[in-house]
């Protein structure tokens, strides 16, 4: 399964990079969303996959009994998801305003955004 997951994450990353390079801001946002999913999955897999119980401690115990999933990457991903959402929402609003100001979401058509060197 690890191998398949690695391949899936690679596929997601490839698609998201292609979308982000496309020069269309909408596709960029879609790519960004996909990329954050891919990265979260990658961190998750790097913490090792196991069909173990969630990392909880039973009432009255001092430590988890039996095998539990790795809690550390879960904590990292949990916040990463929320931050990723914040970033995505901000980007979306940015693009939204960009469209309001320039009337297009194609990068090639936005000429006076930054003078070309």
């Amino acid at each position: 399964m690890e191998l398949i997951m690695a391949a899936l994450i690679g596929l997601m990353a490839a698609v998201s990079v292609y979308l982000m390079l496309a020069g269309n801001m909408l596709r960029f946002i879609v790519g960004l969303s996909l990329l954050s999913n891919a990265v979260n999955l990658a961190i998750f897999e790097a913490g090792r996959l196991s069909f173990a119980a969630p990392p909880f401690i039973a009432e009255g115990e001092k430590a988890p009994t039996g095998d539990v999933a790795n809690a550390l990457p879960q904590a990292l991903i949990l916040t990463a998801i929320v931050i990723g959402f914040g970033l995505l929402a901000f980007t979306l609003v940015l693009v939204y305003r960009l469209y309001g100001a320039f009337g297009t979401v194609e990068i090639d058509e936005i000429e006076n955004a930054e003078p070309r060197g």
């Binding site: 959402f85 914040g86 901000f90 979306l92 609003v93 939204y96 309001g100 100001a101 009337g103």
Partner: peptide, 24 residues
């Protein structure tokens, strides 16, 4: 944060097209 963002976006998006044109 999420509600603020959503409400602002919703407010903005649900305005009538006339306002929009005037704004632009």
């Amino acid at each position: 944060a999420v509600t603020a963002l959503f409400l602002a976006l919703e407010d903005d998006a649900s305005r009538s097209p006339d306002d929009e044109d005037a704004d632009q």
